[in-house]
Simulated scan of single mutants.
Amino acid sequence: MQSEKERINTLIELNDELENYFRNTIIPQLFVDAHLILRKFTPPAMKQFKLKAEHIGQPLANVKENFRFPTILENIQQVIDTSEILEKEIQTTDMRWYQMNVLPYIVEKGNKTNGVIITFMDITARIKDLKEQEKLIAEHELLLDTIAHDIKNPLTSLSLTIELLKKLPEKGMAKFPVLLGNVENSLVKMKDIISDLVQSRWQDQRYQAHEELLDLQNIMEDVRLTLAPQIQDAKAILKFEVGLSEITFSRRKLRSVLYNLLNNALKYSAEERRPEILIKSFQEDGYLVISVTDNGIGIEKQHLNSIFEKYQRINRDIEGNGVGLYLIRQILETAGGKITVTSLPGEGSVFTVFLPIEQDTK
């Protein structure tokens, strides 16, 4: 058996190792005991959260404002009470975003949680990249759709004009039919080029849909991180009930679908209540079905069809350009799927996405 002196030396060595770890780690970490007293923190925490040496030994409540996350004390207490790991995104006073992992510090003797270790991973760049990517995707889709749509009208008009010119008297106009034929040939070539571009675009999506097996939960996590600031500001409650999770589809397209639906659920929330959003997935009749249910302001019955039209906006007081739902419908219909909506004004809406599990790539 160890003598008292040997036990003390062992404890000193262990403490030195712990202190050395805390001094040299590049990750912001905090150690908070079961009484919510701040016991230790790593040097990066001093920089990121403006902690000082005199904060050690003080209640974490004295410095909770440094984290710009109002429920941090409740979250820590939850881990102490349940001994379950908690993961959340939080924003600090310098407007940076972190993945916060709260791990229970369990004492083997008695199997009791004696505090928590909190680790912070900087995800600001990832959130920024995801938001920029989503913005570029929306702008790209809108540009292509607008070009394809708007250029058809003058081409159709030109085609009709040529048909009228064909019917004009040709007396004294010997070269006119030749010139008219050249114009008509050019018109046909323009139509073919546009048709090829549009078809190529949709076909590329079909090929992409079969190039990658996706996990729906990973896509949801990307979307949740992209919208983390909006979720935080709205204090929204997100719930997930994932049944079927795997789908062969385009990652970019599926992200756009979920991003737009979740973004709308946040934007059109009701002022008088906290937003609650439930995302479910399950299999039904050969489809992966994804439903997004909210408790927002809802949609009047007469607008349920028009919301999927380009540039159609029901509420002009809320920021938007009226293309999100239009793009979702285009993506789904091209892939052989569909989207439906049910809604009760003042109570909320349910958007349901149907994605075919087996798609024809021919």
Rank of each mutant, 00 (worst) to 15 (best):
E271Q: 13
G298A: 00
N305C: 03
D317C: 10
E271R: 13
G286V: 07
T334K: 11
D317E: 15
E276M: 05
L304N: 02
I290D: 11
G322Y: 02
Q302H: 09
R329C: 00
D294L: 03
A270H: 15
R316N: 07
R273A: 04
T293H: 15
F308M: 13
E309G: 05
K280Q: 12
K267Y: 08
D317K: 15
I299P: 14
Y268H: 03
F282T: 11
L304K: 05
Y268D: 05
L332V: 00
G320P: 03
I318S: 08
N321K: 08
S306T: 09
R273I: 14
R329L: 04
G324Y: 11
S269I: 04
L325F: 13
E300T: 10
P275K: 09
Q312V: 14
E276A: 07
Y311V: 13
K310P: 01
E300D: 12
I290G: 10
I307C: 01
I277D: 03
R329A: 00
F308D: 11
L266A: 11
Q283D: 13
Y326H: 13
R329M: 11
L332I: 01
V292F: 07
D285C: 04
K280W: 03
F308L: 07
N264I: 04
I297Q: 13
S306Q: 02
L327Q: 08
A335P: 02
N321R: 12
E272W: 09
Y287P: 01
Q283P: 02
T334Q: 05
L327V: 11
A265M: 01
V323C: 01
I277S: 05
V323N: 07
I331Y: 02
E276N: 07
A265T: 06
Y326S: 07
S291A: 14
P275A: 06
S291Y: 06
E272V: 11
F282H: 14
F308C: 03
E271H: 09
I299V: 15
I299D: 09
A265P: 11
I277K: 05
D317L: 15
K280L: 00
E319G: 04
Q302M: 12
G298R: 07
V292W: 12
Y311S: 08
Q312L: 13
R273C: 01
L332S: 00
E333T: 08
R274T: 10
T334M: 09
I331P: 00
Y268M: 06
Y268S: 00
I314L: 05
E272A: 14
I279P: 00
R313K: 10
E276T: 09
V323R: 03
Y311H: 10
A265L: 04
Q302G: 04
L325W: 09
I277N: 02
R329T: 03
I299K: 09
I314A: 06
V323D: 07
S291D: 12
V292N: 12
I328M: 01
G320E: 01
R316T: 07
S306V: 07
K267A: 12
N315E: 10
Y311K: 05
K280N: 15
R273H: 09
E284Y: 01
E300Y: 14
N321A: 06
